[in-house]
């Protein structure tokens, strides 16, 4: 046992408030998000995925400005050019002489946009629906869940195609159609979460203190579901990107002359046999990278959010 020589024995000095709080800061409990981040950082594949996603996002915004070409400008002198440094056609050109570098990144932007917004719509609608259903329970829950079962009984592809045609093909229609066919999964997940949270002590405590349902949902329920919901989003985004690609395949994709990764890949099919396979493989690779990164990241996030679920 050592005694601090600077403090004379038997004498006590008042604590300096500033140093007290400074120390307090060090021991402050780690917030949920910090905790998740700490665990996520240890998950190497997830960190690589984040890096890949950030890089792609960066290219999506910066890429189109890296050369002088416009995504829709046609140049008939350079039709179906192979990837080359010359004239900065790094990804080559398509059959109307448009720069594939710019088109690919613009297309990736559209695909990501569709993925992210469709996923967010799913989240908003799914949370509202799921929380209401789970929180009120009983008859409400029964009816709301039966309704979901019915909706899920209609194949997604039919709902999506019908909606896109009815709303006239376009980015908005595609987003809505994908969101409409995807929210049910999120709603079920959220309801499950609510059911398991409902009987936890802190909810009981809040309820006995007379918290109103709306506040209860906003303050206690929803924040506690952030983890699983985030994990779900990281799987919903690639699903939406895939769905858009399938729509492009049927001819209901993003209207020309704009492009998405789906329409680029679909157009690329015809170039496979005509000596320009890169027009298929470049956008296909980027799409695969995005989807792969999202799903690895999702795995990592799931482990980080709830270590008990680690698999």
């Amino acid at each position: 046992m050592s005694i601090n020589p600077s403090t004379p024995e038997g004498k006590f000095t008042p604590l300096n408030k500033e140093t007290l709080f400074a120390n307090e800061k060090d021991y402050k409990s780690v917030s949920f998000s910090q905790d998740v981040w700490r665990r996520l950082k240890k998950h190497k594949p997830a960190m690589v995925s984040i890096f890949v996603l950030i890089t792609i996002t960066l290219f999506v915004f910066v890429g189109p400005f890296m050369n002088e070409h416009d995504a829709t400008a046609q140049n008939y002198e350079v039709i179906k050019l192979k990837p080359t440094m010359e004239g900065s056609y790094w990804f080559g050109t398509d059959d109307l002489g448009r720069d594939m570098w710019t088109r690919t990144w613009d297309g990736a932007k559209v695909s990501l946009l569709i993925g992210v917004i469709a996923a967010l719509l799913d989240v908003v609608f799914g949370i509202v629906y799921g929380v209401i259903s789970g929180y009120f329970g009983g008859r409400t829950d029964f009816i709301m869940m039966r309704f979901i079962e019915i909706i899920v009984g209609i194949p997604n592809i039919i709902i999506t195609i019908l909606l896109v045609i009815i709303l006239e093909p376009g980015i908005t229609a595609i987003i809505i159609a994908i969101a409409v066919s995807g929210w049910a999964g999120m709603a079920r997940l959220v309801r499950g979460q609510v059911l398991s949270l409902k009987n936890r002590e802190f909810i009981l405590a809040a309820r006995s203190l007379g918290t109103k349902p709306a506040k209860m949902m906003r303050v206690h329920l929803i924040p506690n579901m952030v983890g699983p919901v985030l994990v779900n989003i990281s799987f919903t985004i690639p699903y939406a990107i895939f769905a858009e690609a399938v729509l492009s395949f049927i001819g209901l994709g993003v209207p020309v002359p704009d492009a998405s990764l789906g329409t680029l890949i679909n157009d690329g099919r015809k170039f496979l046999l005509t000596g320009s396979p890169y027009l298929l493989f470049i956008p296909a690779t980027i799409l695969t990278l995005i989807v792969t990164a999202f799903s690895i990241f999702g795995d990592g996030l799931r482990d980080a959010v709830d270590p008990r679920l680690r698999k």
Partner: peptide, 18 residues
Amino acid sequence: AVIGFAIPSFVVAVALQY
């Protein structure tokens, strides 16, 4: 497993065909 899941099925189908 991760990449196999991420390649769009029409790319797989076309590539196999080719």
